[in-house]
């Protein structure tokens, strides 16, 4: 996990190529919308866009080791694996990261961010999808 507040998106993001910010706060334990947001973000990533995934509050559970208790858990496991393959990090609200040692067992790149940093990321985005 990185504790830094680095670039706004993936490798190519910058002032001339601001990212699409996908901000997810829906709880994947109770709603399918967290998974749907990740699916949409992944689809946009595949279109050669820089996508910045930001997980706030209960959405951090998208990285739970055990997906059986998540709505559309099989899809979550599939989509986040593809996100990992693409080398796209998840920016996760620092205070929302669960204590569970099984969290992010798959070792996705996670950048812990403060609420202030999330506000900066949103300001730097080109488009926004908030779930």
């Amino acid at each position: 996990m990185s504790g830094g507040a680095g670039g706004s998106g993936g490798a190519g993001a910058g002032p001339d190529n601001p990212p699409v910010v996908v901000l997810i706060s829906a709880d994947p334990r109770t709603s399918h919308r967290a998974n749907e947001a990740m699916r949409i973000g992944l689809g946009i990533t595949a279109g050669d866009n820089e996508v910045c995934f930001v997980l706030t509050g209960p959405a951090a559970h998208l990285l739970d080791g055990d997906t059986d208790d998540l709505v559309d858990g099989d899809d979550i496991a599939k989509f986040r694996a593809t996100v990992k393959e693409l080398g796209v990090p998840f920016r996760v609200e620092k205070t929302a990261i669960p204590d569970d040692p099984d969290w992010n067992a798959e070792g996705h790149e996670v950048i812990a961010v403060t609420r202030e940093r999330i506000a900066e990321l949103v300001r730097q985005g080109r488009r926004f999808l908030v779930f």
């Binding site: 947001a37 699916r39 949409i40 689809g43 946009i44 279109g47 866009n49 999808l129 908030v130």
Partner: peptide, 20 residues
């Protein structure tokens, strides 16, 4: 359609509003 079209809209429009 699928997400390819959504991506085109995100990239090709002057303004984009998402109501979620």
């Amino acid at each position: 359609c699928g997400l390819v079209v959504l991506t085109d809209l995100i990239n090709g429009t002057d303004r984009f509003i998402a109501l979620n």
